[in-house]
């Protein structure tokens, strides 16, 4: 367990900013929306000033709040019928563009599991706690997501 490492808000924003932005972007698919959620999450953090025991606790809080904010964002009356996905993303190459396109075809709730598992390298159990889902649900969602992304999967990706 890492002790609390960051005492000022700037350090917290730069440390957790990438993760929050990635989760928001992976769910919304647009930079514009991801930026809105990024700010909303940090505003909640700054206003609420939650107390944490360690950095894992703080990280779990940010994941939970980002997922909640993104879910609310999609059901908000002001959001409906507004934007399309991937309209403002620039890709490194064709393969990356294909991967990004395929990622946005899978359901949102699978995208966050993919991100936490493959990028944050969290275990099924840790993801279950962070997203408040049963381990079996997380495992099923991961399996389904892999099946949908099978073109990009190697055999070893199933055993990581």
């Amino acid at each position: 367990m890492k002790e609390l490492l960051y005492n000022n808000d700037e350090d917290v924003i730069t440390t957790y900013g990438n993760m929050i932005y990635h989760i928001a972007l992976s769910k919304t698919g647009t930079k514009h929306d991801a930026e809105d959620i990024f700010q909303e999450v940090f505003m909640k953090y700054l206003k609420k000033k939650p107390k944490f025991n360690n950095e894992e606790h703080r990280k779990a809080w940010f994941i939970r709040v980002t997922v909640n904010c993104t879910s609310s964002f999609f059901t908000n009356v002001f959001r409906k019928k507004t934007r399309n996905i991937t309209e403002d993303l620039i890709f490194i190459d064709k393969e990356m563009q294909d991967l990004s396109t395929e990622l946005h075809k899978i359901p949102q709730k699978y995208r966050e599991v993919i991100y936490l598992f493959y990028y944050e390298e969290m275990s099924i159990n840790e993801i279950g706690i962070a997203l408040n889902r049963k381990n079996s649900t997380v495992r099923t969602q991961l399996t389904r997501a892999r099946s949908m992304l099978k073109e990009f999967m190697d055999m070893e990706d199933y055993y990581v």
Binding site: D9, E10, I13, T14, G17, N18, I20, Y21, H22, L25, S26, K31, A34, E35, F38, Q39, F42, L89, F91, I92, E95, M96, L99, S100, I114, Y115, Y118, Y119, L149, F152, M153, D154, E156, D157, V160
Partner: peptide, 24 residues
């Protein structure tokens, strides 16, 4: 590996300096 490609893709997206400054 998917994991490496995915990380590479996600690493190419970062919150802009302007967004971070605005949030700070």
């Amino acid at each position: 590996m998917f994991k490496d490609k995915y990380k590479e893709l996600m690493d190419s997206y970062k919150p802009s300096e302007e967004l971070i400054n605005r949030t700070v």
